[in-house]
Nucleic acid binder design. Structure first.
Lengths: 117, 117
DNA sequence: CAAATATATATAAGTTTTTTATATATGCAA
DNA sequence: TTGCATATATAAAAAACTTATATATATTTG
């Protein structure tokens, strides 16, 4: 029922980091699971689309940051993704960068002259 | 000297909102001024590129959210941008959306299970 | 039983956005 | 006079994203 999803335009650029960060936490996830987890954790504010997610997963795999293992569950194929060593490193770096970016955005959104806290 | 600029990939998608929000605050700014203000307010964390900024400014103008007035200062042309009424409305909406997005990102980056504060 | 919904992955076409490179032009400092 | 800061702008190319679509099973609903 699409609770209160924002237009998603802001996800641009952060998708890779979101994926890496979740995998750093959960060890092993499949695509569908990632979309559900993001939706749940953000109360529907961020809804990843498959058309964006899968290409990113494939690209991260190509870059050697992720590895996959396919498992059949109830007759359906489920493809688990997990971080490689360079993937864990990238997750740390990118998460830090995103945190800094988010802080910077808040500086911009806060009316000039107001203290940060 | 490029203090500590993040790779800028996160600016993707937020550029329009950053511009609208600054103009809502400052009433009237020119392109170069916008890049300087953003750099300053974020201590160099966010550095806008002209190749991205100008197309966005032109597009917002086309959409009727901004109007321009050209002023000659010291023999140089300076093009001031300011919000129209629909532009002010868009600034509010988009700023709110971005705030909600930023909050959602923090939920994702915070390790699962930890309280929001 | 049929239809809809949830689960699950994936690609292709088209559009939008962004990066990178480039052009133009003035004022000031070294 | 060379370089840097100021100032705007466009074009070509690359990257990213949206939208639409295909496939397939299990479960729920009418």
């Amino acid at each position: 029922m699409d609770t209160n999803t924002t237009s998603n335009e802001y996800v641009r650029g952060t998708l890779k980091t979101i994926v890496l960060n979740l995998l750093a936490e959960q060890k092993r996830m499949y695509g569908y699971e990632i979309t559900q987890e993001v939706k749940e954790r953000t109360s529907g504010a961020i809804a990843l689309t498959f058309g964006a997610l899968y290409p990113v997963l494939h690209k991260l795999e190509q870059e050697g940051l992720l590895v996959t293992e396919s498992v059949e569950v109830d007759g359906r194929l489920r493809k688990y993704y997990s971080l490689t060593t360079p993937g864990s490193e990238a997750a740390r770096t990118k998460t830090d960068d995103l945190e800094r970016f988010v802080d910077a955005i808040r500086l911009l959104l806060a009316p000039k002259g107001l203290a940060t806290e």
